[in-house]
């Protein structure tokens, strides 16, 4: 940009000092059409200096109620997941299908086959609800995204439950595909697959609550990702491999993992005559863990939102 200085600036800038800026900024004119309403002309409080208004605190705007805001968050999160996470759902499904194909050579039907199919199906839930949700909340927190929700009058539970619910629903197609494929592969009955209607939301609540809590509590987003991955690996190793072959310590760890109870409940329904009492018991454990972990996640959200 080589211009002769005279041509460049002198025409607008010769009057000193009254001449306005010689660098004629285009944005200046554009901004000027904002009307200047004198602040005091607008009704209401007088300037603090001379104000003797004795009115009490102003009325607050409405609070968003739990259920409608939960639905709004759920819808928004589900649409996010649809846009951005479909490839990951494929990954999760292929992973589970792949594991079942591998395990076909190892297990010899019966109880072990049931455990493998149930474990692989629940693994899809663990991948999305635990791993991806932990990552999501970890990143949201680190990038300041929680500020958006924290400056809206929305109950913390609505944000956590809405997101957890959306991630859990997002697992449905992958879990169903895995379960059906597993039944065909190992020759298991599909009669009681309807139990997934209870297994997915309850295991989903437990794992999503855990994922959300990990993501919100981890001091750094890398930790959140790491914890999510570890949780999923645990669900894989402890959920898919038949428990009969595990050493005692590992079995104990397995009992501590909430996904185990979803796996057990689902596995029992492949039997000739399932013991529905035990199924219900396992599902109740999932539900209890879900309630506790979602409560912890809600508390963690509250803590993370105001620093």
């Amino acid at each position: 940009m080589v211009r002769t200085p005279a041509a460049a600036s002198v025409p607008d800038g010769t009057t000193v000092p009254a001449g306005a800026t010689a660098s004629n900024d285009p944005s200046e004119g554009e901004l000027r059409d904002v009307s200047v309403v004198p602040a005091d002309a607008l009704g209401g409080a007088a300037p603090a200096a001379g104000g003797q208004r004795v009115a009490g605190p102003a009325e607050l705007g409405p609070r968003a109620r739990l259920w409608p805001s939960l639905v709004a968050v759920y819808r928004a999160q589900l649409s996010r997941a649809r846009v951005a996470r479909i490839p990951l759902l494929f990954v999760a499904t292929f992973q589970s299908v792949g594991i079942m194909i591998l395990m076909r050579g190892v297990v010899d039907g019966g109880g072990e086959a049931r455990a493998v199919v149930a474990g692989s199906a629940v693994l899809v839930v663990a991948f999305v609800a635990l791993n991806l949700l932990a990552q999501y909340f970890g990143q949201l927190r680190a990038s300041g995204g929680l500020d958006h929700y924290a400056t809206l009058p929305v109950p913390p539970a609505a944000v956590v439950l809405g997101a957890a619910g959306a991630y859990a629903s997002f697992t449905v197609p992958g879990t169903v595909v895995t379960a059906v494929f597993g039944c065909l592969l190992f020759g298991l009955p599909v009669t009681h697959l309807w139990v997934l209607v209870a297994v997915i939301p309850l295991a989903g609540a437990a794992l999503a609550g855990l994922g959300a809590a990990l993501g919100l509590l981890a001091p750094r987003p890398e930790f959140a990702t790491l914890l999510g991955q570890l949780g999923m690996s645990a669900a894989l190793l402890l959920g898919v491999l038949p428990p009969e072959r595990m050493p005692q310590v590992v079995r104990l760890a397995r009992d501590l993992l909430p996904s185990t109870y979803g796996v057990e409940a689902f596995a029992r329904t492949f039997g000739e005559r399932p013991d529905w009492g035990l199924v219900l018991g396992d599902l109740a454990v999932c539900a209890a863990v879900g309630v506790i972990s979602l409560a912890v996640a809600t508390w963690a959200y509250r803590r993370a939102a105001v620093r």
């Binding site: 409405p62 968003a64 709004a72 990038s143 995204g145 929680l146 929700y149 809206l152 929305v154 609505a158």
Partner: peptide
């Protein structure tokens, strides 16, 4: 309106505005 906006990034413009309104009650 914060300096960062990662909470809305993956929503459509229309859904971001609507959801924010719903969360304002």
């Amino acid at each position: 309106l914060g300096q960062e906006s990662s909470a809305l990034d993956e929503l459509t413009v229309s859904l971001a505005a609507e959801t924010t309104g719903r969360l304002r009650g």
